[in-house]
Design a protein around this nucleic acid. Sequence first.
DNA 1: GATGAATGAGAATTCATTCAT
DNA 2: CATGAATGAATTCTCATTCAT
Lengths: 191, 191, 191, 191
Amino acid sequence: MSPRTPAQLEQIRKVRKAAIMETALEVFAEHGYESSAISIIAKKAGVSKGLMYNYFDSKEELLVSIMEEGFDEMVTLIDPDRDGVLTKEEFEFLIDGMFDLMKEKGNFYRLYFSLMMQPAVSKLFMEKINKVVEPFINLFIDYYTRKGSKSPMLEAVMIGALFDGIGFNYAFNPDAYPLDDVLKLVKERFI
Amino acid sequence: MSPRTPAQLEQIRKVRKAAIMETALEVFAEHGYESSAISIIAKKAGVSKGLMYNYFDSKEELLVSIMEEGFDEMVTLIDPDRDGVLTKEEFEFLIDGMFDLMKEKGNFYRLYFSLMMQPAVSKLFMEKINKVVEPFINLFIDYYTRKGSKSPMLEAVMIGALFDGIGFNYAFNPDAYPLDDVLKLVKERFI
Amino acid sequence: MSPRTPAQLEQIRKVRKAAIMETALEVFAEHGYESSAISIIAKKAGVSKGLMYNYFDSKEELLVSIMEEGFDEMVTLIDPDRDGVLTKEEFEFLIDGMFDLMKEKGNFYRLYFSLMMQPAVSKLFMEKINKVVEPFINLFIDYYTRKGSKSPMLEAVMIGALFDGIGFNYAFNPDAYPLDDVLKLVKERFI
Amino acid sequence: MSPRTPAQLEQIRKVRKAAIMETALEVFAEHGYESSAISIIAKKAGVSKGLMYNYFDSKEELLVSIMEEGFDEMVTLIDPDRDGVLTKEEFEFLIDGMFDLMKEKGNFYRLYFSLMMQPAVSKLFMEKINKVVEPFINLFIDYYTRKGSKSPMLEAVMIGALFDGIGFNYAFNPDAYPLDDVLKLVKERFI
DNA sequence: GATGAATGAGAATTCATTCAT
DNA sequence: CATGAATGAATTCTCATTCAT
């Protein structure tokens, strides 16, 4: 029989790769990157250990792929209208987006927080993070500048910390955390 | 020379144990718990590998000891006058204490954040955490209740998240973070 | 287009097989047999991994094929007129042939030397080697016998060792080795 | 009980290390470096896999240690009187030394030859080799110069090749090779 | 108490080979 | 015929823990 067409092959690879990344994210988020064995991930993904290395050169590359994709999705999901200034409504929309993200991408958040504290690991996607975070910070600064704040940069830093903290607390215990109520309070206070 | 008295021996043990924990905290904070080898810690602490197991039954027990001690110090350092209500001054004092802690116990903070996201690990000191955190939350709730806030609990949750977020961001990049300025802003806004 | 005739197919097979062997020889010679991956050879030969197994049953069989073909070429290239005695001129011609071989089949020589020391591998083509080497040795013995040497067999052994040694040294560092000058010296001394 | 003294520890390490190297040389020589598994060597040496890495950082380091020690022994065993010119007797003595070495260090020779053809491996001890070989070559050149040879350098190169070739052939089949007779012939011809 | 040699389970990774398409 | 996804055994190496001294 004839071999699979390039399109078929690409399709197989795409699906498999996504499945592996999905599973790996779960396992990494639950046990931490270091404590997650490739063999466990492979088993959970219904794939042989060897095949993992057909898709990712190393465990580290697998991690980086997951994180970069996560950041990209983050931008996609939250991205407000960037072509102008941030209006009140857009700011509100952006905050909603962030909170949605926390809810939908719990594993990504957990993994993210667990990695950031280790320089050896965090440096792997530092560049990407900066590219993602900077625009948000700038939007915040711009927003608070127009609002007439005395120190817009500090306001931005503070609200950034608040989002991180809420994300952290929610990721730590999603079932008990009053995320929606906190969302409302944040909007009241910071918009 | 005469043999050491039991009291002296006890003193030596205490000092050495502290030294091991101090070193282990450094190493754990820098490389992460999983990636830190006992042999490395032993060497850095100037102690043999075998002796480590004279002081701690396992690597895990070493970790738990470090974290519990850290939480205890936290309470000691921050603990305000608990016998009454939290006055404005005391609240301010408490916030100062927290920020001081971030500065002085950077390694502890880093380790704490890196561990909390992993259920398998965090459950080891969940109980302790709850015992430490609860009183603070209660103080906040009490404070905001007396201040007439509509939802003191949410305010407490939010300020808790803010502290976590600031700690996280500062731990991530202590050199560049404007901790003192943020402190001032937090006081203005939340007291 | 009309389908290819069996003869054409056979021709394609032959050419492709030769190309694979050529490439494999290069890779084996450079990295050693064990350290050479089939997938690398396949890629370098512009062929799929799977197809390799259409032409050779196993990596080992590929190696054996290469070596046997190499030995055959060796005989073809050097083979003097066997039907009579070895004259002085023929001996000289034979030596020239050997040195030419070293120059032209560097990869084969390198692979040959790297394999001979490992009993587990060398036994794979022991038989072939003996069939190839014996006639030469006999020619040498015959030559030195007629020349009136006291111990023609030892002379033959020694000149055999000399050729191996020169081949080895040249293979080790082809660029710096004074092969032509050594050739002249060998002729002066041993003919 | 008190711990072992540094002297005791050093003694243990010395003995163990030598035993591992001895065993590894055997295994490497028989199966080739790449085909020899650390686990096999460990088992044959009566030692756990893990302990191997207490003595050598890597398989490669084990190999390099073996080779360097081998070269050092080589120099020790053969080393003639270097302070003056090489007399006829000394040259004879040197040749005897080389042949003795071939007999006594068969495994080392086999390993040496099997490694030299692979650039990736041979570069690991290139420097050492050069340091060992150069003095011999110089002695040869000097000897043939004083003997009035037209091209002492080529003579040295040729006798170097001859030694390599004899070593190679002997290592290949020690039982059947007439080493002593060849030795005699070499002396007659080249001294 | 103190030491570090020794163990062995398990981790990441490689690769010859198979096989569905 | 041809392809490369898939497998799994084997390999190197790490490290928490034990234990004789």
